[in-house]
Design a protein around this nucleic acid. Structure first.
Lengths: 148, 148
DNA sequence: GTCCTACTTAAAGTCAGCTTGAGGTCAAGT
DNA sequence: ACTTGACCTCAAGCTGACTTTAAGTAGGAC
């Protein structure tokens, strides 16, 4: 038995709208195993695949990058080097965001009459202005559920 | 003396292309103090303002949100509550990214023949699939220098 | 046999934050 | 006076990841 799942079921179980599933198919990220009438039917394995895609997205990969990971055979072929690289990028982003968070927290508590007079605020200001955050970093965790 | 800076100078000192400065003006984020011919002239204070904008962007605020912070008087009017809230959001994002980074690092080192057979990989996969990363989070640190 | 409904398609729209292009202007240098 | 070149404006285009819309279709209930 091949456990065919209707697109609506996959949508429900994955939390992704059907339009997104069709979009992913168009992009070559997933594939239906058949149709019932016009309706796409998926193998249950697609759910694991979608999880993998969500994972990649959360890690900051683009859909195109993710598509290349499931290279032509269909089975995930994930380059360990690539993972390390991405992990380092995440590390950098995390440090920047941590600095940012500390700065914001300080600014929030700071009793200087105006933020511009707070030395700490001016310090992170200089850091931001000096280009401490220039580099392109992965957009973090941007998955959204359908807007009801 | 009012230290008028030509737009090209502001571009140079801030690292932002002139087109971005015009765009920011259109959005109401900055203002020129005059023109020399057609050319915008800025007060030196604009550099501090741009740093503040960069800071806000790095912290995940949208340009519109930032614009509201310099409310009508022109001087920054930053809500401490808002800063705290944003700091918490950053905190959440940081935790997610840290988990992500750990997962990637593990997957990179993992000796299981395929990632799908690695328990740790499957664990973060489940986490991602389960919607651990659903929420909208600030895009981290996306400032870019002009592409040469 | 007819209808309902959830699916289908292709194309266009959305959002943020800019960038690019075409055609125009003007201060300064020769 | 004339040229140069960097600026100007306005409109359109771009990227990424989708969503929305309009018009069509077919499986299953009645």
């Amino acid at each position: 038995m091949v456990t065919e799942l209707d697109i609506s079921l996959v949508a429900q179980r994955s939390g992704l709208p059907a339009s997104t599933l069709r979009y992913y198919e168009e992009k070559g990220l997933i594939a239906a195993i058949g149709r019932r009438g016009l309706r796409r039917q998926y193998d249950a394995a697609v759910l694991e695949r979608l999880a993998l895609i969500a994972l990649g997205r959360a890690a900051g990969f683009t859909l195109d990058e993710i598509a290349q990971m499931f290279a032509p055979d269909g089975r995930p072929h994930i380059d360990r080097q690539l993972l390390s690289t991405k992990a380092s990028e995440l590390e950098r982003t995390i440090r920047q965001l941590s600095a940012m968070r500390d700065g914001l927290l300080h600014a929030a508590k700071c009793t200087a009459p105006s933020h511009m007079e707070c030395p700490s605020f001016r310090r992170i200001l200089r850091a931001a202005g000096a280009g401490a955050f220039e580099s392109r970093a992965p957009r973090a965790a941007v998955l959204r559920r359908r807007a009801s």
